[in-house]
Write a protein that binds this DNA or RNA. Sequence first.
DNA 1: TATGCTAAACGAAACGTTTCATGAAATTTC
DNA 2: GAAATTTCATGAAACGTTTCGTTTAGCATA
Lengths: 332, 332
Amino acid sequence: MMRKMSTAPTMKDVAREAGVALGTVSKVVNGLPVGENYRIRVEAAIEKLDYQVNSYAQGLKSSRTYSIAVLLPNTFNPFFADLAHQLNLALQKRRYKMLLCCTAFNPTEEQEYINMVRQNKVDGIIGLTYNPDLVVEPDTPYVTIDRYMGPGIPCVASDNYAGGQMAAEKLADLGCKKVAFLRIGSSLTNEPNKRRSGFENGCLARQLNYEMKILDDGDPFDGFIDFLREHFHNGKLDFDGLFCVTDNLAFQIMKVLESMGLKVPEDVQIIGFDGARMFGDGRYVCSTIVQPTDAIAEMCVELVLMDNAALRPPLVCLPVSYAYGGTTMERP
Amino acid sequence: MMRKMSTAPTMKDVAREAGVALGTVSKVVNGLPVGENYRIRVEAAIEKLDYQVNSYAQGLKSSRTYSIAVLLPNTFNPFFADLAHQLNLALQKRRYKMLLCCTAFNPTEEQEYINMVRQNKVDGIIGLTYNPDLVVEPDTPYVTIDRYMGPGIPCVASDNYAGGQMAAEKLADLGCKKVAFLRIGSSLTNEPNKRRSGFENGCLARQLNYEMKILDDGDPFDGFIDFLREHFHNGKLDFDGLFCVTDNLAFQIMKVLESMGLKVPEDVQIIGFDGARMFGDGRYVCSTIVQPTDAIAEMCVELVLMDNAALRPPLVCLPVSYAYGGTTMERP
DNA sequence: TATGCTAAACGAAACGTTTCATGAAATTTC
DNA sequence: GAAATTTCATGAAACGTTTCGTTTAGCATA
């Protein structure tokens, strides 16, 4: 007496087993109101047959897929890694799946992923992208991180302006007299660019001398080396403090300073931005302005799943904080 | 004269537009042989209507979803982050999507994700998991990283034994006289455990004195601190070399040594395992045995997508290499 | 007991593909 | 030139859900 076990059980099988109609099973599965005795019978049948809904049939019928695509440049950079992790957590909490797409900062990749994801009918997209003219399906909720892309597309970011200001104030508090701001990155208008104006403002408020060295994405890194050399006389740097636009940059700059025979933080104090840590819980890579990745992730998920699109704010800025990481002079 | 644009175009729309049958459109979309003139007409219609296949309908009908679930503990640890990235690359190359699931080393999470993923009818699963008795759907191809789970479930790993041996040899080459192996991690049998025996063997071959301190997953980290204290007399450590089972551990141990007033690598040389780097391309966190994450990822994808399950090897070991990271004495 | 009303189960239709039996057209063969 | 063969477009059926108009059962009222 063989049972046909060749194929996975469907709702129809459950209905037959429980002696109820198809629609009733559907209701039970979706938690809709059903008579108590029916519910019990259906649940027993589900248990017995080890029934699992087929989410492809579900997706086809209801165009609700419980999956969100996340576009990030990579998972190398601890900031992105952290973001990926927090997004995964926030989505999981709501029983959503995360489709992770690494774009390598490549505008073509970004667009291709968006297209691919359209086919997959994800319920929404959360993207930290660099393509200035990304074409997104207007009917798929889209939320960006760090990059304002137009009305109807909310952008979630740290309070970059406040972060820049905080960095300036911290350097001033730590006794710096002449500082510099180093930035390399996208030349598009985006939220992280506000770090510069925040920093400038902070310096002005504290009457702190400052210079800027701004490179664009394609520019060779050597630009910074040249800049530092120009300000290097008799074994001493003109600056006693540096604010680097990211921890990644700070990390690279430290290597340059080291090769010039300069000590961090004794000769130059450095503050980065992002809050990069080595193993998720290790110490910070450098003294840094920490982005609240947990809050950012939570907010992104909140917004991308929001029913009433009209209520979505165009820009959400979340508070940053300062963390000691050994590249500034104070004791932690 | 309004076109109905309310809903996305379907194959039926394309067929009507091109004046061909539904099946013909399907063939064109799937690259099956079709008369040249038909193909051209269909392609024009697809272009014109901006048609995108609905992969949920596709998945329902063909039970081929072009998506693979990847289970990793997190994306913090640079090794996992690297793996995630390389897997993403390898999958993307074959036009597969990656469903990333972070399990936080939690057996329950792991099982829940497996269950969730069953519903989603992914084409396969690649998992770096810790639950010893994970129940996986036998009809979904499963490939593990680092953990042999039984026949029919291929395991991809670095050559951990050779890596351990390499670490011992390196320490011997660098002039160490007495070394120690520190390990914390899962007590299950798994591939990384072979690092110990490889190391032991390497030490014996080179007549290098060694000790071991092995902690299990739940054990408090203080076990290592106690161990080091026991071997610390008059400001000197009994060991001049340490092999830590992961870079993460090496990183933590370095902090302990620092707090004891010991200098790395002058007082103690340290070799870790994994090949963790800060920003994907920064320097290594410590001198380390590097795992070939690219090859691991490629192999996992290869195996999980392999048509003939019978041909899948039970275990694949891939070659590791040594990298200088500032915690050993040689110049890079 | 007959009537009206509510609540909830029922089950057919539809979602957008793939597949396959059918048949038409083109090609080959004698 | 007719018959046999091959080639390939056709379109209906099926995949496993959700939805919604219909029907039935249950209960209160008179």
